[in-house]
Computed example of a mutant assay.
Amino acid sequence: MSLTRVSSPAVGLDVGSRRFLHPGPLRWLRALGWAVALFLVFGLAIAVVQLWPGMLFRGEGPAQAVVTLALCTAAYGLYAGLTRLAEGRWPSELALRPAAAELLGGLAIGAVMLSVVVGLLVVLGLYQVSGPRAASPWGMITVGVSSGLMEELVVRAIVLRLLMRAFGAWPALALSAALFGALHLTNPHATPVAAVAIAVEAGLMLAAFYLLTGRIWMSVGVHAAWNFTQGWVWGARVSGFPVRDSFYLSVPRPGAPDWLSGGAFGPEASVPAMAVGTATAIVVLAWAWRKGNFRARADAA
């Protein structure tokens, strides 16, 4: 009989367990402090990504999209370097081998979800859609790239992951979703109802894809495609922001109740979006639970 030790597949999510996140006293506080530090650094990075391309190039075109993607790539490199330095690991949440497949899958899911939301709004008599018409997609491609890549890096790879390290999966889900909703309160036409809708339908749903895969690529794809499909394909407001160029134009019908249609904030504050996003979140969270991904990976011996 062989006495060779066979290592079993790792179970649970890799949320960091070495160096600054090593086991020991006040680990939760160290994880929380590290989350705050990274949040501040990459909150500044988001501002650079959103503002600098527009300062370099006038008009919404491919140059802005390319520069935005380059800045996001640099931010991901910085995150990987900081994680290696402070946590003694290369971030598995940014693993490259499965990135293409998970990103493409997320893009398809996000586009379908948002289209179902608009379809429900039309069928229920809450929205009217006109078009199609000629329109450049580059502005919304840039928005999709920056929001998908940077917001998922901050809210899922940093906030959700490190809150999970500090407090466990359920508190991390609730707190990160609430933060995601609260961050949208600064958007045009935002209301507490809209923030709650974003927290539940998007905050929990996007977190679910991270918990399912242990990586952020599917969440990035869903987020980017949701915004692009909402803004360019259907021409609806994106989290309160109006869209200038779109293939179709979608607006609430006169007299449609804001609490049903989302009002001036857009479809994301609507009841159909809440239903679609929440149902997706429940299904994906249950899948992640069955995989055992609601617990952190055991600390290395």
Rank of each mutant, 00 (worst) to 15 (best):
M55C: 09
V122S: 02
T280V: 14
L114F: 14
S92H: 10
R295E: 14
E152I: 11
A275R: 04
G59A: 13
E60K: 07
T280Y: 06
L71V: 13
A264W: 00
G292A: 07
S239C: 11
R253A: 08
I216R: 08
V284N: 05
Q50W: 09
I46G: 04
V11F: 05
L69T: 11
L160C: 10
W226Y: 03
P25S: 10
A207F: 08
D258I: 12
R30Y: 05
V238L: 03
R30G: 08
S239L: 08
N187Q: 13
G235K: 01
V233F: 01
W234M: 02
R297G: 01
V159P: 00
S246L: 04
G131D: 01
V6C: 04
M274N: 11
L104Y: 07
A37H: 06
I216Q: 05
H223T: 07
Q230C: 08
G43Y: 02
A10Y: 10
M274V: 10
W52Q: 06
A197V: 05
L13E: 08
A190V: 13
A178I: 12
W232N: 00
I141K: 00
A47P: 04
V271G: 03
L21R: 00
R133Q: 15
V48D: 07
P98T: 07
V143L: 13
P23W: 04
L26G: 02
V283Q: 10
N293V: 12
F228K: 00
A35M: 15
R215V: 08
I198H: 00
S261R: 01
L51A: 12
V238S: 01
A296L: 05
G24T: 13
A286S: 12
L185G: 11
H223W: 03
V118W: 00
F247H: 09
R5N: 14
A10K: 13
Y127I: 05
G16K: 04
V36I: 15
A80M: 07
Q50V: 13
P252V: 06
D299C: 04
A194T: 13
V129S: 05
A208N: 11
W259K: 08
G16C: 10
R165N: 13
A182L: 14
R156W: 04
D14F: 03
L56V: 15
G255T: 09
V271D: 04
V283F: 15
A273H: 03
L103M: 10
L260C: 09
G61E: 08
G144Y: 06
G77K: 04
A177P: 07
G106E: 07
T213Y: 14
P132I: 11
G43T: 05
A45P: 07
D299W: 03
G43H: 02
W138T: 13
I158K: 04
V36Q: 10
V271P: 03
L124V: 07
A298Y: 03
L3R: 06
V49K: 01
M55Y: 14
N293S: 10
L32Y: 06
V220N: 07
S17F: 08
H189W: 09
W138P: 08
K291Y: 12
P267V: 02
T68E: 06
Y210G: 06
W170R: 12
G131E: 01
V238K: 00
I158T: 11
W232Q: 00
G292D: 06
P254I: 11
W28I: 02
G43I: 02
V41R: 05
G262Y: 02
D299G: 06
M205A: 15
V220L: 11
A301Q: 08
